[in-house]
Simulated scan of single mutants.
Amino acid sequence: MDGMAGQKSSLTWAVNIAALLLVVLWTIPTAGLLVSSFRDRDQISTTGWWKSMTSQEQSSFVRTGAAEDQVQDGDLYVLEGDLVGEGQSLSAWGTSARDPGAFAPGESTDVDGATLTVTEDGQYRMESTAPFEMRRGERIFVITESPPSFTTENYSRVLNAQGIGRAFMNTMTVTIPATVIPILIAAFAAYALAWMEFPGRALLTAAVVGLLVVPLQVALIPLLRLHNEIGIGKGYLGIWLAHTGFGLPLAIYLLRNYMVGLPREVIESARVDGATEFQIFRKIILPLSFPALASFAIFQFLWVWNDLLVATVFLGNTRDELVMTGVLRELMGSRGGDWEILATSAFISIAVPLLVFFAMQKYLVRGLLAGSVKGG
């Protein structure tokens, strides 16, 4: 029978397909962001990233020379020039916006008594038996194709931006302590809530769970005012404490649920042998709880590294105080005018978090699952 011990469930294939679909759904946007980071502004604005490996078709118009640009060739008055840019090829052209691709390269048409010819290489020749008197050139609509192209200019622009190195060091200075401090505090608190008997333990556990749903935005201004009143102000100490406070509820909840599921016999045996609570915590609980500690470390590191709001409130906006997200925001401009570097900035900013995640991912699922199914 299906579902019995030692037998493979018939739904295994469905689970595998669902997992594969989830991986694909998460991977496709990331791949698109990576491709877009190597494209220029014009390519991003005209076509999607999925068309980056094909020739790009673009419609535009170019004006011919005016009357002062004409030259006389025998009995004819001639205007000549180029309609396409470097690396582009002409696929069609026209003289009306309603039908910009009316003519194929090499064909001719009459324009106000003159003969207009556009060749395959994008060169136009407009000739007339009477002198041209127009002050502005005639509009010629062209449909061009550009081969696939990629550039590292966006990466060069971001990596060479003024203050990016300083911002990287600021981000590391904020992130590492803001990850380590809450882990240390939460580990002690989680052990107390999981294995030590004292009055009000259930109420404290309920309070921790309740704090998980409190949005940090409501605490930003009161907390900043408190920092100013006690003399901390804006600085690294203030932002470390802020991130610690915002991260502690999740850390305590996650670690407490994990520690509750550890073997009671091991802990009781240590107590019988005369071990103190601190020795039990340091020599037994911490080594066994490493998967949960690593899980929270990944979450906290990602959150602090990608943070902009808390850093802006508790650290400041001067050039020497900006973190990575702040510098990247400045690069895009106050109105987002330089949005083409957004994809590039995203990949540069997630480089370090990705290294942390892949280095500790084997502990992530173990820590989360153990904390979710075991509790008491």
Rank of each mutant, 00 (worst) to 15 (best):
E321C: 13
G74L: 06
F141T: 04
L76P: 07
K8S: 14
S334H: 08
G163I: 07
G231R: 03
F301E: 03
W339G: 11
S89N: 07
T205Y: 08
T152R: 07
G375Q: 10
S45N: 15
L203C: 06
A187H: 04
S295N: 01
T312S: 15
D112V: 09
G48F: 11
F347E: 09
V84H: 07
L211R: 06
P177S: 03
G274T: 05
P182H: 05
I44T: 11
D112P: 08
T276R: 13
D112Y: 07
I221N: 08
P105Y: 09
G261C: 06
W240Q: 03
A161R: 06
G85A: 01
A351R: 07
I28L: 12
E153K: 14
F103R: 14
P147N: 14
A161F: 08
R271G: 01
D338G: 06
Q7P: 13
G274F: 04
V23E: 08
I28E: 01
E268F: 15
E229Q: 15
Y155T: 07
V304P: 02
D121R: 08
A102T: 01
G65T: 13
A67E: 04
W93Y: 12
E321H: 13
V323G: 10
I252G: 00
S334P: 05
A343K: 02
A104F: 01
V373Y: 02
V23T: 09
F314K: 03
R98D: 12
I181V: 14
L220H: 11
E265V: 04
A189E: 01
G210S: 05
S89R: 03
D75Y: 12
G336M: 07
D2S: 11
K374T: 13
V327H: 08
H243G: 10
M169G: 13
A92S: 06
G233L: 04
